[in-house]
Amino acid sequence: MNKKLLLILTLFMTLALAACGSGTDDTKGEAEDKASSDTIVYESETGPVEVPADPQRVVVLSSYAGDLIKLGVPIVGVDSWSAANPSFDEALKDAEVVSNEDIEKIIELEPDLIIGLNNIQNADKLEKIAPTVLFTYGKNDYLQQHIEIAKVVNKEQEATEWVENFKQRAEDLGTRIKGKIGEDATVTVAENFEKQLYLFGDNWGRGTEILYQAMGLKMPEQVQDVALEPGYFAISQEVLGDYAGDYLVLSLTEEQDTSFMDAAWFKEIPAVKNGNLIVADARTAYFNDAMTLDDQLDFFEQEFLGNE
């Protein structure tokens, strides 16, 4: 083989190898692009977490199930409180009830994302099963929390649009309700638990976020004094009349004592005597997620305004 032919063959081989190498790099780059498009990074309270861009098997170990349902995200595992909410029955019919203690059960569910509260045990074990995002309850307000949940599942724009729409609807409804009951009418929210009643501030579920924050209805001063800052305050059933406003919203469950409603002292509370008692199902009222907020807005519209 002469030197000229050898040089041509060497050059050909070099170009061929370069082309192969270029193809390999391009393929690798395409694979990396594909991988990155399958995940996003959420900046959690404890640092960045790589999560699926389109999660299909979420385990939620807190009160955020309604936010995920509203966003159309499939849930395969859910906390017992959310599972007991009749409003969630259809969306959670195939979900398993789990807690942070059910490690083996959660593994069997093969989740691609886990969401919960940051005070749960076994967080380190959960992180080994699937990307795990934990929130501090109350760190975000009730509407921003929905947006944060949406960021985790790559649906921030959808959540932001819902929040703006909800705020407008709630403000409009508040205006209509105050037009009927008066600007200075007060509303008390209470719930029965173990032969006591709990008064609530403006950020503890039970419709309080809607009534006081979104619609701007007034809380009695005596309730503000004891419940606004801590969020809730326990009282004896018999002194409810001392805290009841012009309207009384009772969040009740059959599992707890409701016999007090038959007592003479209860029937003498002005709000009760005047027909301004609103009874809510506690199982649906505990929460302040997006789905629950929509339901509560409809509930309060009916209770305060009827068919107007």
Results as ranks from 00 to 15, higher is better:
10 T>G: 14
55 P>C: 07
175 T>S: 13
281 D>H: 06
265 W>A: 08
17 L>Y: 12
273 K>S: 09
278 I>N: 11
200 F>K: 02
12 F>N: 05
296 Q>R: 11
127 E>P: 03
35 A>I: 13
53 A>N: 12
296 Q>K: 15
20 C>A: 12
298 D>Q: 11
132 T>W: 00
104 E>Q: 10
276 N>Y: 00
222 Q>N: 15
174 G>D: 01
188 T>C: 09
62 S>Q: 07
302 Q>H: 13
276 N>S: 08
2 N>H: 10
213 Q>Y: 12
230 P>F: 08
289 D>W: 13
216 G>W: 06
168 Q>L: 12
242 D>P: 01
27 T>D: 05
43 E>Y: 09
294 D>L: 10
268 E>S: 14
237 Q>Y: 02
118 N>G: 04
118 N>A: 07
179 G>T: 11
67 D>C: 06
49 V>S: 08
198 Y>R: 15
25 D>S: 08
182 G>Y: 10
295 D>V: 07
207 G>H: 07
251 S>F: 10
55 P>S: 08
67 D>G: 06
229 E>M: 03
255 E>V: 02
278 I>T: 07
244 A>W: 02
243 Y>V: 00
14 T>H: 00
178 K>R: 14
43 E>R: 05
63 S>C: 08
253 T>C: 00
132 T>G: 04
4 K>S: 12
32 E>A: 08
292 T>Y: 02
101 E>S: 15
57 R>C: 03
53 A>I: 02
294 D>Y: 07
232 Y>M: 04
253 T>N: 14
208 T>N: 13
291 M>R: 03
271 A>H: 09
297 L>I: 10
25 D>Q: 09
133 V>S: 09
204 W>T: 10
280 A>M: 15
153 V>W: 10
167 K>Q: 15
194 E>C: 01
210 I>M: 12
222 Q>I: 10
123 A>W: 05
69 I>P: 12
32 E>N: 07
185 A>G: 08
155 K>G: 08
7 L>K: 13
86 P>E: 02
35 A>R: 14
157 Q>G: 01
305 L>W: 12
284 T>E: 15
37 S>L: 03
131 P>F: 08
67 D>P: 09
242 D>G: 00
171 E>K: 15
152 V>N: 06
207 G>D: 04
176 R>T: 12
161 E>M: 02
75 I>Q: 04
235 I>M: 00
256 Q>K: 10
120 I>Y: 10
155 K>N: 05
28 K>Y: 14
305 L>C: 09
